[in-house]
Design a protein around this nucleic acid. Structure first.
Lengths: 252, 252
DNA sequence: CCATCTTTGTGCACACGTTCACAAAGACAT
DNA sequence: ATGTCTTTGTGAACGTGTGCACAAAGATGG
C-alpha cells in the first residue's frame, strides 16, 4: 500500500506483516477503551470482538510482537497498550505539518484524534497569503514560503497534504526535499516519491466508488432473486444478462 | 474489507477480485484526465504509470472486465471510461446522506469530488437542533429526527457517518434500519452491521499510526547503518537491539 | 499478401494473508 | 501434587494477490 517497490525483502526477523501493522492501531484503540474502564485483562476472543476481527487473526498478529499473553487468562491490558504503542512508535512525539488549510485541512487541524496519540500539529501551511497569520484550531497559518524552514526547525518527518489535486505533487516534492519521509495524502492524485518515502492516501471519492460497486452488485442480485424483474433502482445500468456485454457506446 | 462473512463464494464468473475493484477508481481517474486532454488511446504501460501501478497488474485487472484492448495499439480511452464507469455503477446516480455536520462533515459536504462522479448529496443531517435549517455547502442541515424519512423519500442506500465516535453506532443502526446498505464511516469506531451491509472506514488516526510505524523503522535502520549510534530522532523508543525486548513497564 | 513490430491477455510460480484446529502452557481447585 | 479447564501460540492448509514472461493478436509498411 505504501510506495517503494519490493520494500522489505524480509531483511530482519523483526518483519511484522503489513496487514498486521495496519490492525495494530485498531487493537490499540480497543485496548485503550478497556484501560479507561480499568479492565485488567482481556481474552483474544473479547478483544477481537471489540476490534472487529476474528480471534485467530488477532492471536497471530500478537504473536509477531512476542508472547505477551498468559494461557488460560488472556492479555494484560496495560502491558499490551504499552507494547503496541512502542511497536508503532507512539512512545515518542511526532510533529506533523498540514499543508492546505481549506475546508478539509481546517477539519483535520481541529480533529482531536491527532494530538491524542503521539502526534502534534507543528504547523499549518497554506499558499494563500490572505490566510497567513489567521489562527485555525488555535494555530496560526503560515505561508508556503516558510515550508522548508518549518520542516527543518521542527524536525518534521510526517506531512499531511490537503491541497487541491493540482498542488499536491509540487507540495509533495518540496516536503520530501525538505526532509519529510512519510506523507498522508488527501488530494485525489497519485504522488510520485523517491524510494524510502512512504505515502498513504485517503480518498473519499474512491471509497464511495467501491461502495457503489458493491451496492450495484447487491441490487443486481436482488433483482435476479426477485425473478429477473429489474427494480427501479437499476436506472442507467445496461442490461447485464448472464454474460451481458452490450457494446453500447463503443466509439470509433 | 467489507463486512459480511465469506461473502461471495465465487457465485458467478462475474466475480471481480476486491483488489481489482479497489483499483478501478484509480484507473478511472487517470482515464478521465486523458479524456479531457482528448487523448484517443493509451497503452497499459502509460496508463499504469499514470495510475501508479505496474502494467501487468493493470492488464490483469482489465482482463476481469473483458477484452477491451487492441493488441499493438492499447486501450480506447473513452470506451474504457464507459466500461469502468458502468462496472462501478457510476452510470446511475447515487443519493448520499452525510450525518454529523461538524468540521469534517462540512468539509465533506463542500468536497467537489462528491458530485463529480455519480454521487449526489441528498441531505445533511445533524443532531444539534441549532444547526437545523442552517445551510452548509448550499444545502440546509436537517435534524436527526428526519433521518428515516429522508432516507426513504430519497431512496438513499449510501450513508456517510461523520459524527463523534460515541454517536456512530446508534446512527449506523438507524441508517441500516431505514434501508441504507453501504456506509462510509469517518468516526473512529468499529461499526457492527448485519450481513449484507458494507462498511468502509476512513480513519486519519490509524493512517498516521501506520506511517509512524514505518517512520520509526526507518529511523532505527538508519541508526543501525550509521554505526549503532542512536540519532536524536530516537527519543522514547526502548533500546531495540537485534532482539531487544525490554520488559520495562510490565505492570502487575 | 507477407513480414515485422507493438502491445495485449494470461498461464504459472511465488508471496502474502487468513483460518482452522490442536498441542502446550499455565491458572485454579481439590 | 494432581487433575481439570481455559486460553494462548502456531503448524499447516487454503485462498487471494502479484509479477514474470511469453504466445497470440492485430496494426502497419512494403
Amino acid at each position: 500500500m505504501a510506495t517503494g517497490r519490493t520494500h522489505r525483502p524480509a531483511t530482519r526477523s523483526r518483519g511484522i506483516p503489513e496487514a498486521t501493522v495496519a490492525r495494530l492501531p485498531l487493537y490499540l484503540r480497543a485496548l485503550t477503551a478497556l484501560s479507561e474502564r480499568s479492565v485488567p485483562t482481556v481474552s483474544s476472543e473479547e478483544l477481537a470482538a471489540a476490534a472487529g476481527v476474528n480471534s485467530a487473526k488477532l492471536r497471530k498478529d500478537f504473536s509477531y510482537l512476542g508472547s505477551y499473553g498468559t494461557r488460560g487468562v488472556g492479555y494484560d491490558v496495560e502491558y499490551l497498550v504499552y507494547q503496541i504503542s512502542r511497536e508503532l512508535g507512539l512512545t515518542q512525539d511526532w510533529p506533523v505539518v498540514i499543508v492546505g488549510i481549506g475546508n478539509l485541512g481546517a477539519a483535520l487541524a481541529n480533529y482531536g484524534g491527532f494530538a491524542s496519540r503521539g502526534f502534534r500539529v507543528a504547523a499549518l501551511i497554506d499558499a494563500d497569503p490572505a490566510m497567513a497569520g489567521k489562527p485555525v484550531a488555535g494555530i496560526p497559518v503560515q505561508h508556503t514560503d516558510e515550508l522548508e524552514k518549518i520542516i527543518q526547525d521542527n524536525g518534521v518527518s510526517i506531512g499531511v497534504i490537503a491541497t487541491p489535486a493540482g498542488a499536491a505533487q509540487p507540495v509533495c516534492d518540496r516536503l520530501v526535499a525538505a526532509g519529510v519521509t512519510s506523507i498522508l495524502n488527501f488530494a485525489p492524485t497519485v504522488l510520485n516519491v523517491p524510494d524510502g518515502v512512504d505515502v498513504r492516501k485517503v480518498d473519499l471519492s474512491i471509497e464511495l466508488q467501491i461502495l457503489a460497486f458493491h451496492e450495484q452488485r447487491k441490487a443486481g442480485e436482488e433483482a435476479a432473486a426477485d425473478g429477473a424483474l429489474p427494480t427501479a433502482a437499476r436506472a442507467g445500468s445496461a442490461d447485464q444478462g448472464p454474460d451481458g456485454d452490450v457494446p453500447a457506446v463503443m466509439p470509433a
